[in-house]
Design a protein around this nucleic acid. Structure first.
Lengths: 220, 220
DNA sequence: ATTTTTATAACTGTATACAATCCGTCATGT
DNA sequence: ACATGACGGATTGTATACAGTTATAAAAAT
């Protein structure tokens, strides 16, 4: 629906998709909550059609679960699912690190190097937001430099799902040694040691899982 | 659309989904072919709505690609994508084998053992259809026994995509030693050797990739 | 009081109508 | 001859109407 006053937007369904996605990841829509199409369509001042499409796409990403003839609900959270997601992430991101050794470019490498320095800097400054940003960038580059599109697509799905688990216990600070681990992985890639890069990345991810698990005692 | 004569079907969209999926995997819809919603809706004697939903779901599984404002097309095939898919499969199915060591049940184990014997039998008899069936069963059980739902879901997506590449060169017989590899993996699981099970499974999958690549010289 | 039945409301699933966009063709001008 | 632009057809994107199903709750029966 276009009122004519607002700037014209193409891809209405994309907007709807992003709105719902944010609402879920940020916890405005709670796990298990029912998502009635008409209600959401009203809220976003659009019709049911784009909402349906958006919900289907979110189902694809695991954020929404469809129950036949009963509609969609926000996918519930569980420790078991989280562990499963992290195991997959460890396997796939380990693979990404391995492939990165062969395919990463000079520019990508120096991008990582710079981000590591900046992360150290922001960590000293206590700017956690920026630290997380650089942390994410590190993983972004390695996944991209794997030059494996199916891998990238799967990792994107996994990461959005994992984000929900991070958000619900954002109280937990991050592990102090994650930055040292990043530097080690970086070194392994620079040294063209694929086995080591993969192994370090796997452990890094699984260590992240353990850290997160300690803060989620109330789940399941 | 219901004529009243046919048996009543719920989940019309499910039917549509399966029809299109089969058409793609079996090569009736060719890679790159444009999929006009209205045309398909006519063919299947339904309306555009279920077709749209089915296409979105197929997009999720990588069989269909959407180009904004231009609709859907059958995802093209490429050697690069195939290699990417197999690398992911190797990583994830390796993980599955590792987890199976910890989680597989007595029944699942004897199920595998029996299927291996049957496969040997059918191989001697030259019943390739049955051999492939037992082959698939072997992988099914291991993936299931990983007891990791996200892993299972991803593997399902990967396997349907890979199926397309198998179909286009079904001329290639399978490798004679795949059965021996299955037996080795089975032994590693029985012996509770997680490292070995993972390693063997990875190599098994990558060997499958190499075998398939030789028959696809015309791709890309 | 508890259970069963029935009616109604709410919602999903499907069909169709309408609007916006894209693509190709043909005409016009240089 | 070639580039440019306007028109028309086809197709996607969106809205809405309608049908079928499920859930809810009130009424009836035990």
């Amino acid at each position: 629906m276009q009122t004519g006053l607002e700037p014209k937007k193409r891809n209405l369904y994309e907007q709807v998709y992003l709105s719902i996605k944010n609402a879920i990841v940020n916890g405005e829509f709670l796990p298990g909550q029912k998502l009635a199409e008409a209600k959401i369509a009203d809220q976003l001042e659009t019709s049911r059609t784009p909402v349906r499409e958006a919900l289907r796409r979110l189902e694809r990403e695991g954020l929404v679960t469809f129950i036949p003839s009963q509609g969609a609900e926000v996918t519930p959270l569980s420790k078991g699912t989280m562990a499963g997601l992290f195991e997959c992430r460890a396997a796939l991101e380990g693979l990404a690190a391995r492939k990165a050794v062969a395919h990463i470019s000079k520019e990508e490498l120096s991008g990582i190097e710079e981000s590591l320095l900046l992360a150290s800097h922001f960590l000293e400054m206590g700017d956690l937001k920026k630290v997380i940003e650089k942390n994410t960038y590190f993983h972004d580059v390695i996944i991209l430099s794997s030059k494996n599109p199916p891998l990238q697509q799967m990792m994107e799905q996994i990461r959005t799902q994992i984000l929900r688990y991070r958000r619900i216990n954002s109280k937990i600070g991050f592990r102090s040694y994650f930055l040292a681990e990043h530097k080690e992985i970086f070194q392994a890639i620079v040294n063209r040691d694929a086995d080591k890069a993969e192994e370090l990345m796997k452990n890094h991810v699984l260590s992240d899982l353990n850290h997160l698990l300690t803060g989620l005692s109330f789940l399941d």
